[in-house]
Amino acid sequence: DEEIEKWIETLLKRNISLRVNGKDLEIGSEEFKEWVEKFIKEV
C-alpha cells in the first residue's frame, strides 16, 4: 500500500526507532521489517 510505504519512508528519513511491545525496533532492521509486514497484514 502506497500510504504505508510513504509512512515507512518518512520514518526512515527521520531515523526513528519505534517502541513495539516494550522493545526498541531499529528502523530498517529485520525485526522492524517483520513488524511492518505483520502490521500491514492486520490493517
Results as ranks from 00 to 15, higher is better:
1 D>R: 14
1 D>E: 14
1 D>T: 13
1 D>W: 15
1 D>G: 12
1 D>Q: 11
2 E>A: 13
2 E>D: 11
2 E>P: 09
2 E>Y: 11
3 E>N: 06
3 E>R: 12
3 E>W: 15
3 E>F: 10
3 E>T: 11
3 E>K: 12
4 I>H: 02
4 I>G: 03
4 I>V: 09
4 I>P: 05
4 I>Q: 03
4 I>A: 04
4 I>N: 01
5 E>K: 13
5 E>M: 13
5 E>T: 11
5 E>R: 12
5 E>I: 14
5 E>C: 11
5 E>Y: 14
5 E>S: 11
5 E>W: 15
5 E>Q: 13
6 K>Q: 09
7 W>M: 06
7 W>I: 06
7 W>F: 08
7 W>V: 03
7 W>L: 06
7 W>H: 00
7 W>T: 01
8 I>R: 03
8 I>M: 05
8 I>L: 13
8 I>V: 04
8 I>N: 00
8 I>S: 01
9 E>Q: 07
9 E>V: 06
9 E>F: 10
9 E>G: 03
10 T>R: 11
10 T>L: 12
10 T>S: 14
10 T>P: 00
11 L>M: 06
11 L>V: 08
11 L>Q: 01
11 L>W: 07
11 L>C: 07
12 L>P: 03
12 L>H: 02
12 L>M: 05
12 L>C: 11
12 L>G: 02
13 K>Q: 07
13 K>F: 09
13 K>H: 08
13 K>P: 03
13 K>D: 15
13 K>M: 09
13 K>A: 07
14 R>G: 15
14 R>W: 15
14 R>F: 15
15 N>Q: 12
15 N>I: 15
15 N>F: 13
15 N>V: 15
15 N>C: 15
15 N>L: 15
15 N>T: 11
15 N>K: 07
15 N>A: 14
16 I>M: 02
16 I>C: 15
16 I>Y: 00
16 I>L: 01
16 I>G: 13
16 I>E: 14
17 S>L: 12
17 S>C: 14
17 S>H: 09
17 S>V: 12
17 S>W: 12
17 S>F: 06
17 S>K: 14
18 L>V: 09
18 L>Q: 00
18 L>D: 01
18 L>G: 01
18 L>A: 01
18 L>C: 10
19 R>N: 07
19 R>A: 10
19 R>E: 06
19 R>Q: 09
19 R>G: 04
19 R>K: 11
19 R>P: 03
20 V>I: 05
20 V>A: 05
20 V>W: 05
20 V>S: 03
20 V>C: 15
20 V>F: 03
20 V>K: 03
20 V>Y: 04
21 N>M: 05
21 N>L: 08
21 N>F: 07
21 N>Y: 05
21 N>W: 03
21 N>S: 05
21 N>H: 03
21 N>R: 01
22 G>N: 04
22 G>S: 02
22 G>I: 04
22 G>E: 07
22 G>M: 05
22 G>D: 05
23 K>C: 13
23 K>H: 07
24 D>K: 14
24 D>A: 08
24 D>H: 05
24 D>F: 09
24 D>Q: 10
24 D>I: 12
24 D>N: 11
25 L>Y: 06
25 L>R: 05
25 L>C: 11
25 L>G: 06
25 L>S: 04
25 L>W: 03
25 L>F: 10
26 E>F: 10
26 E>D: 12
26 E>S: 06
26 E>G: 04
26 E>V: 12
26 E>H: 10
26 E>N: 06
27 I>R: 06
27 I>S: 02
27 I>V: 13
27 I>N: 04
27 I>Y: 08
27 I>E: 02
27 I>A: 04
27 I>C: 05
27 I>Q: 04
28 G>W: 08
28 G>E: 03
28 G>N: 08
28 G>C: 14
28 G>Y: 04
28 G>K: 04
28 G>H: 04
28 G>L: 06
28 G>V: 04
29 S>N: 02
29 S>D: 03
29 S>A: 06
29 S>W: 10
29 S>M: 10
29 S>Y: 04
30 E>S: 08
30 E>R: 09
30 E>I: 12
30 E>P: 12
30 E>V: 10
30 E>L: 11
30 E>A: 13
31 E>I: 08
31 E>L: 11
31 E>N: 04
31 E>G: 10
31 E>F: 08
31 E>Y: 09
31 E>V: 05
32 F>I: 03
32 F>G: 01
32 F>E: 00
32 F>Y: 06
32 F>L: 06
32 F>N: 00
33 K>C: 14
33 K>R: 14
33 K>A: 06
33 K>S: 04
33 K>P: 02
33 K>W: 15
33 K>E: 02
33 K>L: 13
33 K>M: 13
34 E>G: 09
34 E>R: 14
34 E>L: 14
34 E>F: 11
34 E>Y: 10
34 E>S: 09
35 W>Y: 07
35 W>Q: 01
35 W>R: 02
35 W>K: 02
35 W>M: 04
35 W>T: 01
36 V>E: 00
36 V>G: 00
36 V>S: 01
36 V>R: 02
36 V>M: 10
36 V>A: 05
36 V>W: 06
37 E>F: 12
37 E>D: 07
37 E>A: 14
37 E>G: 09
37 E>V: 12
37 E>K: 11
37 E>T: 13
38 K>S: 07
38 K>W: 11
38 K>R: 10
38 K>L: 08
38 K>I: 06
38 K>P: 00
39 F>Q: 03
39 F>C: 10
39 F>M: 09
39 F>D: 00
39 F>Y: 09
40 I>C: 13
40 I>G: 01
40 I>D: 00
40 I>E: 01
40 I>Y: 08
40 I>A: 04
40 I>R: 06
41 K>G: 02
41 K>D: 03
41 K>F: 06
41 K>T: 07
41 K>Q: 10
41 K>M: 07
41 K>Y: 04
41 K>I: 04
42 E>N: 10
42 E>K: 08
42 E>C: 15
43 V>S: 09
43 V>W: 15
43 V>N: 05
43 V>G: 06
43 V>A: 07
43 V>R: 07
